[in-house]
Amino acid sequence: MDYSTLEPGQVVSRRTLTIDQQTVSSYVTAVADASRPWGEEAADKTVPPTAVATLGFRCIIEDLTIPEGTVHAGQELEFERPTRVGESLTYEATIEQNSVRRGSRFVTVGMAVQDSIGRKVMAGKSLLMVPAG
């Protein structure tokens, strides 16, 4: 991908994903989150909010074909409502900034996540430092 052509406002990813128990279990095990029961192990079947964010980051990685050498420099997250196991979420990633400084390209990607009836679930911004080509 030619990152120099990315324009603010450009939608670079739009996907609808269903958050299943396997996804939740794999995530909770990987991050060793014992802060409370999650997913099917919880009465409310709540998904870790950072798992919802991580799936969004996955969309960005795959749909922007993030190159080797990219550094994740910063992250903002805003959670608006909990997600339950089995819910379908729509992720939309948009370019917010794209500039070159000191030989590196800095790309800020915004992420908006909605549930199946259009309610805001979370929003985020990822600051990526991409090797300038």
């Binding site: 802060s35 870790p48 909010p49 992250q75 903002e76 997250l77 805003e78 959670f79 608006e80 909990p82």
Partner: peptide, 19 residues
């Protein structure tokens, strides 16, 4: 997030902001 969940429970999950 684990620390904030322990501190604030559902409030973190429902309304948290992190930068």
């Amino acid at each position: 997030s684990q620390s904030l969940t322990e501190a604030f429970g559902a409030a973190w999950i429902d309304s948290g902001r992190l930068k």
